[in-house]
């Protein structure tokens, strides 16, 4: 009954190397295998999405089906990056899920307001993170349909 033969490509914007490692491991713990790519801040995220700087090769930096976005990052933070993505007609169809330690009501509200598809507060334990990523993947990989590249190119 579920649609997904096609692998899903995730792009994760996270500045903290420990968190990157944990997220990577949590993705591997949960069952479905998918491609994941990382960038370290909002500037690199936008460069990646716009194929600028070192991200010009689509086979090395494929367009993601979904973005996981940390809010507190250097240079350009997640709030600003989210606003830019959602105001760019060529990028705004990509769902952005915020994954952050912030529990501030203002961050939650503002993220939804500027177009985040959802907001996840990073669980403090690794087990919690694995559980959250599992629930996240069940939703976005198993039951949800994402746009295909053919539809986007048209």
């Amino acid at each position: 009954m579920f649609n997904n033969a096609k692998p899903v490509t995730f792009l994760i914007a996270e500045d903290d190397p420990d968190d990157r490692l944990l997220i990577h491991e949590a993705f591997q713990e949960s069952l479905v295998s998918n491609s994941i790519y990382f960038v370290e801040d909002g500037v690199k995220l936008l460069d990646y999405l716009r194929r600028q700087d070192k991200y010009t090769d689509p086979t090395v930096s494929p367009t993601p089906d979904l973005i996981l976005l940390d809010l507190n990052m250097p240079r350009k933070d997640g709030r600003e990056a989210l606003a830019e993505i959602k105001s760019d007609p060529r990028l705004r169809y990509i769902p952005v899920v915020v994954l952050t330690t912030s529990k501030a009501e203002e961050d939650i509200m503002r993220s939804y307001d500027i177009g985040a598809a959802s907001y996840i507060t990073k669980p403090v334990t690794f087990e919690g993170l694995v559980e959250a990523i599992r629930g996240f993947k069940q939703y976005w990989v198993q039951i949800v349909c994402l746009p295909t590249q053919d539809a986007i190119d048209e």
Partner: peptide, 28 residues
């Protein structure tokens, strides 16, 4: 999210289970 409606009770049950878990347990 875009979900194609399952046509069976079992299918809908599965979708609702995952919806619940994601939106009301994982997401803020």
């Amino acid at each position: 999210g875009f979900i194609i409606k399952p046509q069976t009770c079992e299918g809908m049950h599965e979708v609702v289970k995952i919806l619940n878990r994601y939106w009301f347990k994982v997401v803020q």
